[in-house]
């Protein structure tokens, strides 16, 4: 009960103070629109192709929304030492991490649904496989958020969090099969692609929209669950090691 109160209030405070601020809300809307426009230009303005770009667009919206937000907010709280308040609270580190990442996961998921809500303005939606769509959105949000946490633990300044985020994000965009199908990537790069959770998230979203993808949906789901557990465990260990000195 007590942990529940603490968990809920940490989540609520982060949502209110960081994620649901006007600049972030506008980022959540403008960012997917900008990417949508870019993809439309790339496809020669074929608006009926809008749903072919949505899996990538949704994945990128989540990736950029979650990694930068969590990395920056946690680094900011660490700098101001308000994060120590959380470490001093009688709440387990696991519950604390779930509360801190929960806000970012939620924010990322909202970001993902913005393009999905806008797309019907351009073309009629296809039959969606909602379980795959929800699972894909959720796990891309979870793994991207945990990547943000990994970045936050590794840096001490807010600007470092920003630049370090890009160090991971941009290679991931090109490696996850969004711009180039995986089979068209050079063979020596492919192992990297298959090691990135985003690849499986994008694949799961492709399955949700197009009924098929390069990687079997079941395999993607298992890989994403294992990635989420592993990343959570690594992040927890890093926090224990690096912040509880």
């Amino acid at each position: 009960m007590k942990t529940g109160i603490a968990f809920w209030n940490i989540l609520l405070k982060d949502m209110k103070n960081y994620y649901l601020k006007p600049p972030n809300i506008s980022w959540g809307i403008i960012f997917p629109f900008a990417w949508m426009l870019m993809f439309l230009v790339r496809t020669g303005g074929k608006v009926e192709d809008v749903y072919s770009m949505l899996p990538g667009l949704m994945a990128l919206s989540i990736l950029f929304g979650t990694t930068s937000m969590l990395a920056v907010t946690i680094t900011f709280e660490r700098r101001g030492r308000s994060f120590d308040r959380l470490l001093l609270a009688p709440v387990s580190l696991t519950a604390l991490m779930l509360a801190k990442t929960g806000g970012a996961v939620f924010f990322g998921m909202i970001n993902a649904f913005v393009p999905l809500a806008v797309a019907p303005l351009f073309a009629a939606p296809p039959a969606l496989q909602w379980p795959y769509l929800l699972a894909g959105v959720f796990f891309v949000a979870v793994t991207s958020t945990l990547l943000g946490l990994f970045i936050a633990v590794s840096v001490s300044e807010v600007f470092e969090a920003q630049t370090f985020s890009n160090f991971f994000r941009f290679p991931m965009i090109f490696l996850c099969g969004l711009f180039f199908p995986l089979e068209r990537l050079p063979i020596f790069i492919r192992p990297l692609s298959y090691a990135i959770p985003l690849t499986y998230g994008v694949s799961l979203l492709k399955t949700a929209f197009h009924q098929t993808a390069e990687i079997a949906a079941g395999f993607s789901l298992i890989f994403l669950i294992l990635s989420a557990i592993t990343l959570f465990w690594i992040s927890r260990r890093n926090i224990q090691k690096r912040w509880i000195l």
């Binding site: 942990t3 603490a6 209030n9 103070n17 101001g80 030492r81 308000s82 308040r85 959380l86 709440v91």
Partner: peptide
């Protein structure tokens, strides 16, 4: 060093700290 939350007001800060202890 005072390490409460700049963006919260005095009342909210205290309430948040109370919530951390399950009040």
């Amino acid at each position: 060093e005072s390490n409460l939350y700049d963006e919260l007001n005095g009342f909210e800060n205290l309430c948040f700290c109370g919530a951390l202890y399950g009040m």
